[in-house]
Amino acid sequence: NITNLCPFDEVFNATRFASVYAWNRKRISNCVADYSVLYNFAPFFAFKCYGVSPTKLNDLCFTNVYADSFVIRGNEVSQIAPGQTGNIADYNYKLPDDFTGCVIAWNSNKLDSKVGGNYNYLYRLFRKSNLKPFERDISTEIYQAGNKPCNGVAGFNCYFPLRSYGFRPTYGVGHQPYRVVVLSFELLHAPATVCGPKKST
């Protein structure tokens, strides 16, 4: 009989979020998941679920829940969905086509923008091939755009693969920082350890 609540607040209220190319993952297990707390949290810009209804989450049990978190621009949030393409979905964070879970995003301009620009948040701009679902690539190898080998030196046709967002408070909404948490639900042939409040007695 599990009684402790799942530590969703640790994920959602973290002081610093990860850059999207180096997205953070927390495994959540052996706890009671009260999703209504999240669902009623006012400032969400997006709360979209795939393969599961957000209002039914509290009735369900899962083997594991993974909480992935990172920061992207407002106009990139739409790429955090199954079957998407674009710089983020291709080179930074890719969801599987059969994704079961929820994508939760909110504007973090007050936290993550600075006058003069916040350059701490990076994304991958160049990559030889697209990421596989949930693949994480933190390499900083110089990207070779031409035929000539770069030998690890940036220059003509040789690019550092990461780019900084440089968030400023005055940017338009599409270019403002958004914090994103992706909850993915794993249902294995194993005992369920993460259940909603109704199922955990």
Rank of each mutant, 00 (worst) to 15 (best):
K110I: 11
N30G: 10
N4C: 14
V37Y: 09
Y66F: 03
S29M: 05
A46D: 04
G166M: 10
S200T: 06
V153K: 05
S139G: 03
A18S: 09
A192H: 12
L188P: 08
E10K: 14
G152Q: 12
E135A: 09
Y119A: 14
T85G: 07
L125S: 03
S29A: 07
R27L: 06
H189S: 02
P54A: 04
F47W: 04
Q144S: 10
R16N: 13
T193A: 09
H175F: 14
A46S: 10
E141F: 03
T193M: 05
F41K: 11
K56N: 12
Y121N: 00
P149A: 15
N24T: 13
G146D: 07
K26Y: 12
N157D: 15
V153R: 11
G117M: 00
A190F: 03
T201I: 08
G116K: 00
V32R: 12
D97Y: 07
K110H: 05
S29D: 04
E10A: 07
L5N: 14
A46Q: 15
L111N: 09
G155S: 11
I142R: 04
G74E: 01
N1H: 01
A145L: 07
K56C: 01
P169T: 04
L188V: 04
A145N: 12
V173S: 04
Y159R: 11
L188I: 08
E141M: 05
F126Y: 14
D97I: 12
A192F: 06
R16Y: 12
L122E: 06
N151Y: 10
R27M: 04
F45R: 05
G152A: 01
K56R: 07
T170H: 02
G83C: 01
F44I: 10
F156Q: 03
V173P: 13
V194H: 05
L5S: 12
K199T: 11
V173F: 08
G83R: 06
E186R: 15
F126T: 04
V37A: 15
A154C: 04
L162M: 00
V37L: 14
T63Y: 12
W106F: 10
N64Q: 06
N130S: 15
L122T: 02
K198P: 08
G146H: 02
S129D: 11
Y39I: 07
T201N: 11
V52L: 01
K198A: 04
A22R: 14
A14E: 01
N120W: 14
A154M: 11
D97S: 06
Y123W: 05
G146R: 13
K110C: 14
N24D: 14
T170S: 07
G166H: 02
R163M: 11
D97H: 10
E141R: 10
R73G: 06
D9I: 03
N118G: 01
P43N: 14
R16T: 12
Y39C: 09
Y35L: 10
F156N: 14
E186T: 05
G83Y: 13
I142M: 15
L60Q: 01
E135D: 10
L162F: 01
A192D: 13
T140Y: 11
K56L: 02
A33Q: 03
K199S: 11
Y119G: 12
K128D: 12
I104F: 14
G196T: 04
L5F: 03
S53Y: 05
S53I: 14
L111M: 10
Y178F: 04
P149T: 10
V32K: 08
G155N: 13
L111T: 08
N147M: 11
K56D: 01
Y178M: 04
T3S: 04
D97W: 12
A190I: 11
V173R: 10
F156I: 08
H189R: 06
F126V: 06
G155Q: 15
P149H: 06
Y119H: 12
Y35S: 03
Y159F: 05
N40Q: 09
G117A: 00
N151S: 03
F126R: 04
I2G: 11
V37N: 01
N75T: 01
N1K: 01
A18P: 08
Y121Q: 02
P197A: 08
S29P: 15
A81R: 06
F160W: 07
T170Y: 05
F45P: 00
P54I: 09
K132D: 12
I138S: 04
N151A: 15
D97F: 03
T85S: 04
H189F: 06
W106I: 02
E141A: 11
Y39E: 15
S184R: 07
D90Q: 02
G174K: 08
A190H: 14
T63A: 02
D97P: 03
V103I: 13
P43A: 05
K56M: 04
L5P: 05
K110M: 10
